[in-house]
Design a protein around this nucleic acid. Structure first.
Lengths: 152, 152
DNA sequence: CTTGAAAAGAACTGCCT
DNA sequence: AGGCAGTTCTTTTCAAG
């Protein structure tokens, strides 16, 4: 649990927004030399604050225009039920995220589909047939805004 | 809505997992030369399939060990209410994601906090005081698994 | 921390099959 | 489409202040 100064936070915020900028460009933006900026970034990686770099894929450009969030309550609890459910749900290609949660539901899923008809197919043939599924609640995504979040 | 072949999907899957690998390394992995792999990646960028590159920040390493998903139902609807709510909620630093959704709730929020006590503070002083907030439902994140999702 | 420089590697270009 | 060869740029490391 390293603590960061304002410059570290600025670098982190910039890289979380766009990781294609070079260390030299970041240094110029925040008043550091290229090696200084580079050393700070490497320090953030070594400290486990930066855990990887990913490309962001636009699902709509691939024809997946529908995103639905599902809350799933299991009818049967217990260790085996959780493991069975998790194994089965991770085998569904349309499921992007599986969150084990505490509260009214046991799992939250992020599911993508080509359109609503395609989503109904996924829901009926894939989701509702999962082992131990009880109550299911759905929310269809309209717009999504991601923000940097707190950094220390 | 470009359509991809198996090689494009393999490249995309690899880059969505780890964008630090070079075009040359990807080419060797999938039986392409460095320029061939690079040209395919650039084509995916130009087609709008790859929309950016980001670093992944581990919030736990920064001391934010608690993630909570909130479903929010507005008491007062209408265009102005939505805009007021969105403007106010995006000003809360602990809110990472704001999703406008259709269903039982109107918005879904991803909120991070240092611990449960800190989350209670955010909930009472920030979330419950948002303009037009009605019913609120919470799920505390235990574990999260992200999967590649469908690519075409 | 800085500047400057050097070596390694990746990105990018043009030409050819 | 893909490959080869070459150029340009960044990244990465080092030395010295």
């Amino acid at each position: 649990m390293i603590d960061l100064d304002d410059t570290d936070r600025a670098l982190l915020r910039a890289l979380a927004e766009d990781a294609t900028v070079s260390a030299g460009a970041l240094g110029r933006r925040f008043g550091l030399s290229q090696p200084a900026a580079w050393r700070r970034i490497r320090r953030l990686e070594e400290a486990g604050v930066i855990v990887g770099r990913r490309v962001v894929v636009d699902r709509e450009a691939l024809g997946f225009g529908v995103t639905v969030f599902l809350g799933v309550k299991l009818a049967t609890k217990g260790r085996v039920s959780l493991e069975d459910f998790e194994r089965a749900v991770t085998a569904i290609p349309e499921v992007q995220v599986v969150q084990h949660v505490l509260g009214l539901f046991d799992y939250r899923l992020r599911v993508v589909a080509r359109d609503i008809a395609d989503f109904e197919r996924v829901l009926r043939r894939r989701i509702m047939t999962l082992p131990g599924v009880g109550q299911v609640e759905a929310n269809v995504l309209l717009t999504e805004e991601k923000r940097p979040g707190p950094l220390g």
